[in-house]
């Protein structure tokens, strides 16, 4: 813009823009930027919750301990399994529900309303509700499965190391599929109708229409939705914490980090774990943006 005459109007607008942004930027810097910086900083120290202002630098020690802790790797594994499986199922199911909602059939309104309910329920409440349903002694799940003769004796769903993670995934699928379905539905509703009419007139098989026309067209929106859900899943905390506490069989990276930070008061070590989690999220984003060519519309 240099060299051109600046009208006072444009200048005034730009100045106002920065002025308007300032409060938000200050707040974000205060609640996000600075704390993040402190977390990374703490990760190179031996700070504890009690001695947040008296600590010593320990270099990479925290990280070296971390990579040698099998529980940490278990948490990484749990998080990845949880993310891949739950997001995968949610995408498939969400796509199915979105297609049903998009087809103009009776019962659509009811279905949409019903599907919104899990989304509206707080995660903690969902976890408790399912925790109760999966209760080993009095849970309705055991009662139904035994009634149907599918299992012979009650299972300890949330305590059994082999079953706990699947249970957590099942609850997440229940809770998050609606979000997926709604986002996909929005994408579906933006597709031109005459496209489908043309395909129907040409007698193209519906499955082929879906694979050849629908899927490529909603792909960008689908990818963004998947990315959002993935980032959300990678930082999961509430579900595991409420359903299974700090149990190792389901512990996510967030649960691990918080356990050290708060329960064990080892801020330095916990911060190192939290920092690694940020790196994993950043890597996932970069991967999605480059490999999946996800285009997040950040201002035209």
């Amino acid at each position: 813009m240099s060299g051109l005459p600046h009208s006072s109007l444009e200048r005034q607008r730009r100045r106002a823009a920065w002025l308007f942004l300032l409060p938000m930027l200050v707040v974000l810097a205060g609640v996000a930027g600075w704390p993040l910086f402190r977390t990374v900083f703490f990760s190179f120290t031996d700070a504890t919750l009690a001695t947040l202002d008296g600590f010593q630098g320990v270099g990479l020690d925290n990280y070296l301990w971390l990579v040698r802790d099998p529980v940490w790797w278990r948490a990484v594994w749990n998080t990845l399994v949880f993310t891949v499986v739950s997001v995968g199922i949610e995408t498939a199911l969400g796509l199915g529900i979105a297609l049903i909602l998009n087809a103009h059939l009776p019962g659509r309104g009811l279905l949409r309303a019903a599907v919104l309910i899990p989304w509206a329920i707080p995660t903690v409440v969902s976890a408790q509700m399912w925790g109760w349903m999966f209760h080993d002694l009095y849970g309705v799940v055991n009662a139904i499965l035994m009634g149907l003769g599918l299992i012979a004796e009650p299972r300890a769903w949330t305590a059994d190391p082999d079953l706990a993670l699947p249970v957590v995934i099942a609850v997440d699928v229940w809770k998050s599929t609606p979000f997926m379905a709604l986002l996909i539905l929005a994408a579906l509703q933006m597709l031109p109708r005459d496209l489908y009419e043309a395909a129907r007139v040409d007698g193209v098989h519906p499955v082929k229409v879906f694979v050849r026309i629908t899927l490529p067209l909603i792909r960008p929106a689908l990818m963004v939705a998947v990315l959002f859900r993935t980032l959300d899943a990678l930082r999961v905390f509430d579900l595991m914490y409420v359903l299974t506490g700090n149990s190792r069989s389901t512990m996510s990276m967030s649960v691990y980090a918080r356990q050290y930070l708060i329960d064990f008061q080892d801020v330095g070590y916990g911060s190192a774990a939290a920092t690694l989690l940020v790196l994993v999220l950043a890597a996932a984003t970069v991967l999605a943006v480059t490999l999946g060519r996800v285009r997040v519309d950040a201002g035209r």
């Binding site: 051109l4 005459p5 600046h6 009208s7 109007l9």
Partner: peptide, 8 residues
């Protein structure tokens, strides 16, 4: 009107 600035 002044809604755009002239380049010259």
């Amino acid at each position: 009107a002044g809604l755009e600035e002239p380049s010259a």
